[in-house]
Design a protein around this nucleic acid. Structure first.
Lengths: 250, 250
DNA sequence: TCCATTGGTGAACAGTGTTCAGAAGAAACT
DNA sequence: AGTTTCTTCTGAACACTGTTCACCAATGGA
């Protein structure tokens, strides 16, 4: 959002009057909104308190009356991502797909804003306001009939994969910037193909696959590997055959 | 402090005036060394070019004659981690354990220096000097009989898990400062246990497991899940069966 | 009308990464 | 020796950063 009137006021009409009688009060919401505008336009490295203040047409110090500092601003931005995210109720017959949806939704959230994966990585491991999401993820995992100890690590594993994959994905895009993914992919593929085959036989052979046709496909395959691994634990438990899994809901 | 060659310099050769603290020339190596000293003592947030220069007793601008900037310094620090790391030759009968060792070694590398996981995350996806490591990882995966498509994503998956897990692990430690892991773990466990059970039944039930007895154990379990998932692809068929094709998109 | 409270201002502080004209030092040549 | 050349390091500056704080404008209540 650009300022409507950025025309420099001539020196002769300098009554000490404020321009807008309808001064919209500054709120946390508006600050976070402005931060997202700056983030999407300039990127994380250029996202400074001063830029956010400028976006709002306000002095830097005004922000500190509403927000504790830059760290809290990041916290608020991160929380904003989960505003309209709801997980479905656990369905024991469909738990694997539900888990995948959880990861897919997380990735899409991070891709919605530029550099959001980096912000997500810097985020604290757990914050109170998104505990409900983790809880519901566990509910789905429980419906899958997984042993407790596996459930406990599965959440981390899935989140870590989703965040890490998306971070890498967006770093590629940022680095070779503003090129479409097709071009980026071709560039990377060409690089791998050009390596000396005697020293890097596997990388040359896999060049086409290392950067798949689409990131979506690569992401799905990784998800599949994890889900298959989890499933082995579900089937392994003698008391809980796959047919009886629907009774596991509690 | 002895001279490299202790043969007395013949008098007809140019006599060295300066024998006292001979000015050790600044090199990339010494700069990286100093950077690690500052990093371990002060943490990543306090690691600035000026701090590194001060550690060396030198002006800031002197660094820029040897190092392109802070980004390249981070690059050099990251590369340093791989200096004495060698992967074993692929052993088809033991590929799963070899893969695990790869991940374990990576985690240990990152834990060796404070905040190193964060630096690793900011690192570019691929840099030329550690291509040999990736190549050898692929060699081991190939020895496991994995399909090409799975191999191509497995590298990412493993690295992502290893880096993400270690990052989270070290962020916990940094946040609850200077406490031993036993205390940190107890604190987290108590927090999860204290949640309202009607809203968070799973988290309360899993409180003990969410922060395992040791991080080592949790890391191993996650590795096991991934390896089991990979193994399902290896067992399917060495020669591209129909089940394999199920994941191909035409 | 005066007063008090709130929210925004502008300047300042202590940092940051990076650049660049020039000083210091060692080596080489005359 | 003296002089020049070349490299390395210095000091000061620039344009930023997050954050704080004394002040000031505007509003609501008495």
């Amino acid at each position: 959002m650009s300022q409507p009137d950025d025309v420099p006021t001539p020196p002769w009409e300098r009554p000490r009057k404020r321009q807008a009688p309808a001064r919209i009060p500054l709120t946390r919401e508006r600050i976070v909104d402005a931060a997202f505008v700056v983030l999407d336009r300039e990127g994380l490295d250029k996202l400074s308190m001063r830029q956010v203040a400028a976006e709002l047409g306000v002095a830097v110090s005004a922000l500190y009356a509403h927000v504790e500092g830059k760290d809290e601003l990041f916290e608020l931005m991160y929380a904003r991502l989960f505003d309209h995210a709801e997980l479905p109720d656990p369905d024991p017959d469909n738990w694997q797909e539900q888990i995948k949806d959880y990861a897919r939704a997380g990735r899409q959230r991070l891709l919605r804003h530029r550099d959001m994966a980096r912000i997500s990585m810097a985020h604290a491991p757990f914050t109170a306001d998104l505990l409900p999401h983790v809880e519901k993820l566990f509910a789905v995992l429980r419906a899958g009939g997984l042993p407790d100890k596996v459930m406990a690590i599965a959440g981390d594993l899935l989140s870590t994969y989703m965040e890490g994959f998306t971070l890498e994905e967006s770093m590629w895009q940022e680095r070779l910037n503003d090129a479409s993914w097709k071009q980026v992919g071709a560039e990377i593929r060409d690089y791998f193909s050009s390596l000396p085959p005697e020293r890097f036989p596997n990388m040359v052979a896999l060049a086409d696959l290392l950067v798949g046709e689409s990131n979506d496909y690569r992401f799905e395959l990784g998800l599949d590997i994890i889900l298959r691994g989890l499933a082995t634990y579900a089937e392994e438990d003698p008391g809980k055959s796959s047919r009886d899994r629907r009774h596991e809901r509690e």
